[in-house]
Computed example of a mutant assay.
Amino acid sequence: MSTSSRPQVPENAERAILAAGCFWGVEHLYRKHFSDKGLYDARVGYTGGDFANPSYRAVCSGNTGHAEATLLLYDPSRLSYRTLLEFFYRMHDPTTPNRQGPDVGTQYRSGIFYTTPEQEKIAREVTGKANEQWWGGKITTEILPAGQWWDAEEYHQLYLSKNPGGYECPSHFVRDFPDLKD
């Protein structure tokens, strides 16, 4: 996978759009764990609101309805949507509405923005299992149809790769949960 901001992505790539708090850490963890397993690219941006062409400053105001989110482009023959979602529930705290660690506001909410009926089905299945088996019935993650995606400003792309000592939300780490049971 390229570390340039805009790599070539094959036409067969599928999209997953996830919000799990500060998008820098989410993007960084997905790249770290899946760059050699079928992840073509991870972009940070905004979705879920009703404000056109939002800026970081506007999203941080809490007035746009948008969440900081990550767009994952992946090879479905090598990496499944289910795997991406199981990782999603391991790498952040989905039980705190509008919050990840010290980051508070609607832009930090937990959300899955599905692009197909099959993604919605898988999102609901994985969320139900993770809620029951890992998070004690406390998951607050939204599961919504994907709307317009807005790329964040260029300085946010690959932020932690460009700034290795940059801010990372303390709630972003991979939890050692057992595999989900059917």
Rank of each mutant, 00 (worst) to 15 (best):
T95R: 03
L29A: 09
V174Q: 07
T70M: 10
W149R: 11
P170I: 06
P54C: 11
T127F: 08
G166A: 02
W24Q: 03
P97R: 13
P76R: 06
D103Y: 07
E11W: 07
Y81I: 00
E153F: 13
D179W: 04
S55I: 10
G128Q: 14
C169F: 05
V126F: 11
K181M: 02
G166R: 00
L71K: 09
L18F: 12
M1N: 05
G48Q: 14
G111Y: 09
A67K: 13
P54R: 11
N53T: 11
E120N: 14
K32Y: 08
P10F: 12
S77V: 05
I17F: 10
N63D: 15
R57G: 11
I122N: 01
A19W: 06
Q148F: 02
G62R: 13
M1T: 15
L158W: 13
S110R: 04
A42V: 09
H172W: 08
D75C: 10
D176I: 04
R109K: 10
S171A: 14
W134K: 10
K162T: 10
G128H: 14
E154W: 08
F34Q: 01
S5G: 05
E153K: 08
K129W: 08
G62N: 15
E27Y: 07
K121R: 15
F173P: 00
P178R: 14
I17S: 14
Q100N: 02
P164I: 12
L180E: 00
H156T: 12
F173E: 00
P170L: 03
Y89S: 01
D75K: 09
D103S: 06
Y155D: 08
G25V: 00
S4E: 13
D41V: 04
H28N: 02
G45S: 09
V126N: 03
G165W: 05
L79E: 04
E86C: 01
A58S: 14
Y159V: 13
P97Q: 08
E153L: 11
N131G: 10
P97N: 01
G101V: 00
M1K: 09
V9Y: 08
L85N: 02
T3Y: 15
D179C: 04
F51K: 14
T64K: 14
L180C: 01
T96A: 05
E120I: 07
T106R: 10
P76Y: 10
V59M: 09
C22H: 05
Y108C: 00
D41N: 13
V26G: 07
D151R: 10
V44C: 06
I139G: 10
R78P: 03
E168C: 03
M91P: 03
L85M: 03
D103K: 06
P145Q: 06
D176L: 12
N131Q: 08
Y30Q: 00
G147T: 06
S2P: 06
A13I: 12
S61H: 14
E153R: 13
G165D: 13
Q107F: 11
K181Q: 03
I139T: 09
T64V: 15
A123P: 03
F173R: 04
G38A: 07
A130P: 06
G101S: 00
D182R: 12
A69K: 13
R124G: 02
L72N: 03
F51L: 13
Y30E: 02
I143S: 09
A58Y: 03
D151L: 14
C60S: 14
